[in-house]
Amino acid sequence: MTSVDRVQPAVSADDFIKGLWRENPVFVQVLGMCPVLAVTNSGINALAMGLATTFVLVLSNTLVSLLRRAIPRQVRIATFILIIASFVTVVDYLIQALSLELHRALGAFISLIVVNCLILGRAEAFASKNTVLRSILDGLGMGLGFTFALLCLGGVREILGSGALFGIALFPAGFQPWIVMLLPSGGFFTLGLWLLLFNYLRARRLEERGEAQGVVP
């Protein structure tokens, strides 16, 4: 007896890698913008936020995937939100226990991980349909992709805005920091420029493949 009737796609490295670049949650899918813009005024905040989101994403993906057969379709969104909110509360307390300063710097944005569309999106689109191992890999990939994007923004904004990276001064004393980069508008500009870069790279790759239409969706 063969198990043709129960085809489960095998675990593949692609589950992990796709989130990092090709389906990067921020630059390609444009999801979860609020924390991306709000907490990226320094590298360390960006890193902490990215790791907290990854943590929630991996755990909620795991639990959703474990329970996917026990949850009826009609109440799935409600249960997903419950699960996500619990893990976010857990992260909130863990960060408070680790470092009060970090908790103050991130402020309410830790709690706001709950409404990050990325997490609910992955639970709904991936974890509720796939095995635990694949869901964990997917969560890890997406989470690290998200962290990478946050670091791209946080790095640029901290380097230009305060002339330092992770608190280490990079420029000679005469450097006049671009304060605007630390302000909210700096967040919008930086993200806009990164998206532009990604659009450009994608358009060029499409052209190289001979599919001449490099149009942005």
């Binding site: 444009v30 919008f188 500009f189 993200l191 806009g192 420029l193 998206l195 532009l196 659009n199 450009y200 358009a203 490099g214 942005v216 969706p217």
Partner: peptide, 9 residues
């Protein structure tokens, strides 16, 4: 290339 989200931002 600039149209869309990048411009809006």
């Amino acid at each position: 290339m600039v149209r869309g989200t990048a411009l809006t931002l």
